[in-house]
């Protein structure tokens, strides 16, 4: 059972990208995607990229790193998550229609559901322990 736990813990963040790409380069790519640690490719939907580009001025397109990481931290409590990064927090704040503080934004379950509904491919979960 311990091996199973270790395997599951190792697998939790295996989907995270090796290197994130900016919105600008995603918009210019023919098939925008990032490679995960497990080697799999994760593709972004163009309609989501267009939505993000509408939310940000063009000068900030190269500062937004994709996918936006939603950190699920046990210490925040069940259902709460943290989104870090100045531009990332700003864009999520615009979707939720509230302000981000200190370059990060804490989101709760209903908001998380809304974000994932609007940005299913350009956001990814990250488990923090």
């Amino acid at each position: 059972m311990e091996q199973v736990i270790k395997f599951e813990l190792g697998r939790l963040n295996a989907h995270l990208p090796v290197k994130r790409i900016s919105l600008k380069s995603a918009l210019s790519a023919s098939r925008p995607a990032v490679q995960g640690k497990n080697g799999n490719l994760h593709y972004f939907k163009r309609e989501e990229l267009k939505l993000l580009s509408k939310l940000l001025p063009e000068s900030e397109w190269d500062k937004l790193q994709l996918p936006i990481l939603i950190a699920l931290e046990s210490k925040l409590g069940r259902g709460a998550a943290r989104i870090s990064g100045e531009i990332e927090a700003k864009v999520i704040g615009k979707i939720l229609q509230r302000e981000a503080t200190d370059n990060e934004i804490i989101v709760y379950r209903p908001e998380l559901a809304l974000i994932r509904r609007k940005l299913p491919t350009t956001t990814q979960y990250m488990f923090v322990w």
């Binding site: 697998r11 989907h15 098939r31 995607a33 995960g36 799999n40 994760h42």
Partner: peptide, 12 residues
Amino acid sequence: SERNIMGIEVPT
């Protein structure tokens, strides 16, 4: 194509 939801491959 594919996308990842917590390590689960789903089609896009």
